[in-house]
Design a protein around this nucleic acid. Sequence first.
DNA 1: TGCCTTGGCATTGTATACAAATGTTCTGGG
DNA 2: CCCAGAACATTTGTATACAATGCCAAGGCA
Lengths: 216, 216
Amino acid sequence: MTIAAPQKDAYSLILEAIDMGTYKPGDRLVESDLAERFGVSRTPIREALQRLETQSLLTRDGRSLIVASLDHNQLAELYVVRAELEGLAANLAARHATEEEVRVLRDMVEDDQKLKGDPTAMARANRRFHKQIHLASHNRFLVQQLDLVHRSMALMATTSLAADGRPEDALAEHDAIVSAIEARDAEAAGEALRAHISKAFVTRLKLDSGELGSVS
Amino acid sequence: MTIAAPQKDAYSLILEAIDMGTYKPGDRLVESDLAERFGVSRTPIREALQRLETQSLLTRDGRSLIVASLDHNQLAELYVVRAELEGLAANLAARHATEEEVRVLRDMVEDDQKLKGDPTAMARANRRFHKQIHLASHNRFLVQQLDLVHRSMALMATTSLAADGRPEDALAEHDAIVSAIEARDAEAAGEALRAHISKAFVTRLKLDSGELGSVS
DNA sequence: TGCCTTGGCATTGTATACAAATGTTCTGGG
DNA sequence: CCCAGAACATTTGTATACAATGCCAAGGCA
């Protein structure tokens, strides 16, 4: 028996399109265009757009919706909040994760060593790793808040894993985080994750400043 | 020239109804009922409901939407996240608030002394106080996240300010928080706000356990 | 030549009609 | 008397038609 294709809803489809870069920050989203593109009527499209707007992935420009963009300040603000929440997640994970969950984290760190060459796979694995820590916190609100944070990160063009040598560093940091969780050292785990995010932020800033289109 | 009544949208109307307790946790929200009640068609109602659902104020029960309810665990989870985020806000406020913003906070603490007798006014003043701290952090993402947290708190029937002696304690704690911000002591401010939330949580737990409908 | 006005057009906001799905009640058989 | 099944009613999901609003361009007037 064949399982029907998951038949994603409009929300997921649009979100995916933003994730893939089909729609870039600043692009205008026209309801009728999207409706035609996805083969549904405007009604479900509108509902999806409103959801994305409440999550700040879209923003209003006059009457129409455009993909939100992050200026330098907003980027900094986002990373501050992310560091705090991810740190909290690691702290809670150290205290509340089951042995099995910790084991999964450890396995991930081992397995991801093999992906160092493939940036796309690395990025996906990285997301799964962080998600697993979120879940291990056993705090549903925190998971939800972190989901929001990560969704906003879709507005950034590139992953910080694109930087030279960053995959190696990131994996070493992941290892340190998992070690702290294994030791059930909540403080150390939180601190390790905060440091991890901080380094990712530094990397991103370097990437952004080094990009083409220099300052006059 | 008369200004037309603000003409709130469906989203605000439903949110307000939940806030006022018109719809209580567990209540089912039927689109056509709401449409008739607010004198609009189902379309804007649906959009409002979807927004509320993405904010977890509504949840699905089968196919229909009901007002979300917080069990004991979720309450605890919410307070953990709230303490962390509010603490971060106070920390940032101590560092980034303008002199004028600090002054507003100080004035609020002074003025709110007069409201101790009126629980409703106290609750409103309390919200404004916390909101002012959020804004003083000058971090838009943080403000947004805290908005979400506070919206979820609408699902709790009573405010912790309803407890005997709580208004006095709360005001003293507010004073301590503002003092730390005035001194630009970020660590102390964050800690003071975390302690404030922690005490509010303790109060709430006592309130909840003391309610009618005892344990057989 | 430049600015303001006006008209048309594109796009969003709202309502309504229709289809699909789920829960409910009534009836008949065991 | 209880259970099963089917018809029915209620409610959500989707499409489409219509209204209203804001934007842009073209033309006229200063």
